[in-house]
């Protein structure tokens, strides 16, 4: 077979074109009836409710550990009263969206990649298509929409739990009420900060599910391919999350 440039370069551009086609198809299908509401609610449950326990533990530990690690440095300057503000900025602007996205990339992204991958290799996706059901809309659109909705909600929950973890540590050292803690924590948070965090979470949710769906939907090579799809769904989405984090924060700084 002849290649335009070389095998690897050709394959890279083919992949880029396939991803682009996949995204275009998603936006074409998402606004077109019939809407698969029941399946979307089921996916919201899978992505959102089933991730709550994991997010609770990781979010709580993140807030608690960050506070414990930051205390000695601030104590040197006698500035431990700034801890709530510092934690608030760190958690809301960076830790909560990133931790939520990375946890979900591992849990949700790999799950979607493996599920769709195994459906692909066992011809269940073909079976849906030949029975007159739009498999892309039923499987891909519902998962991407559900994840894009649930990750921002999980992020807000993770931020709350992180702040609670932080409060427990601060409360054990200083006599501060929960209300005062939250007032201080949100003192330096602007609307733009909150909006950018929310926007980033939507983008992360979209990315995680898009990569998982793309890898799963295009799985080849049998069960080995399913493992690869799940693995690549996690690796690629984590990589993209960091790139997006950098790009969006840069954009927000320009706006600011």
């Amino acid at each position: 077979m002849k290649y335009v440039i070389s095998k690897n370069v050709d394959s890279f551009f083919t992949d880029v074109s396939d991803v682009f086609g996949f995204v275009v198809r998603f936006f074409k299908e998402v606004f077109k009836p019939p809407f698969e509401f029941n399946e979307m609610i089921k996916q919201c449950y899978n992505v959102g409710v089933r991730s709550v326990a994991l997010i609770t533990v990781t979010g709580f530990i993140t807030g608690l550990v960050f506070t414990k690690q930051s205390r000695p440095s601030l104590a040197e300057f006698g500035a431990t009263s700034w801890l709530p503000s510092l934690v608030g900025i760190a958690v809301i602007k960076s830790l909560a969206p990133l931790v939520t996205a990375l946890i979900c990339a591992g849990k949700v992204g790999s799950g979607i990649g493996a599920e769709l991958g195994s459906m692909k290799v066992t011809e269940q996706i073909d079976a849906m298509d030949v029975s007159g059901v739009n498999a892309f809309k039923f499987l891909v659109v519902t998962r991407i929409v559900a994840t894009s909705i649930c990750i921002p909600l999980l992020m807000m929950y993770a931020a709350f739990v992180s702040l609670m973890g932080s409060y427990i540590d601060i409360h054990s050292h200083e006599n501060i009420t929960l209300l005062t803690f939250f007032q201080n924590a949100f003192q330096k948070i602007t609307f733009l900060d909150f909006a950018s965090t929310l926007f980033r979470s939507v983008i992360y949710g979209f990315t995680i599910s898009l990569v998982g769906c793309f890898k799963g939907y295009n799985t080849t090579q049998g069960t080995e391919g399913v493992g690869k799809a799940a693995n690549m769904a996690v690796v690629v989405s984590m990589f993209l999350i960091f790139i997006e984090e950098m790009a969006i924060i840069q954009m927000v700084n320009w706006i600011r």
């Binding site: 459906m119 066992t122 011809e123 073909d126 029975s131 007159g132 059901v133």
Partner: peptide, 27 residues
């Protein structure tokens, strides 16, 4: 058309009833 796949391609997460209902309800 009816397509009977080599490995049956039944939907793993659904019961037999749901497998049969699925194409009918969707169409």
């Amino acid at each position: 058309l009816g397509f009977s796949f080599q490995n049956s391609a039944l939907y793993d997460s659904m019961t037999v009833r749901e497998n049969l209902e699925f194409p009918l309800v969707k169409n």
